[in-house]
Amino acid sequence: MTTQSVKFRVYRYDPDKDAKPYMQDISVEVDTTTERKLLDALVKLKVVDESLSFRRSCREGVCGSDAMNINGKNGLACITDIDTLKQPIEVRPLPGLPVIRDLIVDMTQFFKQYHSIKPYVINDSPAPDRERLQSQEDRKELDGLYECILCACCSTSCPSFWWNPDKFVGPAGLLAAYRFIADTRDEATSQRLDDLEDPYRLFRCHSIMNCVDVCPKELNPTKAIGKIKDLMVKRIS
């Protein structure tokens, strides 16, 4: 076992006892053979200081719990290698959302926007006894869309979302909107486009691409947003 000391600057705030947030300098020993991810180090940190609060679950990048701002960039702690990070590692909550405690933010607004795009297949035709058939090509259209883990790394790095979290759907929600538009089993494309035809809901996106840059699942919300815009243009002409 080889150990390494990892230095941190962590955002701390417990409304029960702190008048305002502060940055805590702290370091922790990790076993470099088994504890290679940032989440491993945070879990170790929590052993030293149990009051440090953050969300985590799957520890393999699929549940979307441990999104945070790491050295200035949003990402998932559980799939970020400690090795790749400049120390002291500065860890902050996702920007733009209210902080509940330490690294835990209130995601209500983010999920509200997700829910606003009707995130489910709408198909009122009577279902056949068997599966609805879909060609391999049509199914392929969903790749790069359905894999979203709702971590919010993208939306909380998007300036348009920071300014209008209540009105702009944001990259995650728009990616989801396109996921259903692109699904040949969904029959509500025009209704979905109507709903997004709004100066804020869709058109606040100025293609700054921060969202693409941070998505831990390597998805491309900007591209999906572009496709929605294309469809809107097409239906006018």
Partner: peptide, 17 residues
């Protein structure tokens, strides 16, 4: 099959199943 009707993005065979 119900799950497919709910919108589950199953992979497909060449005949769409």
């Amino acid at each position: 099959i119900e799950l497919e009707h709910y919108g589950m993005p199953f992979d497909r065979n060449s005949d769409g199943t």
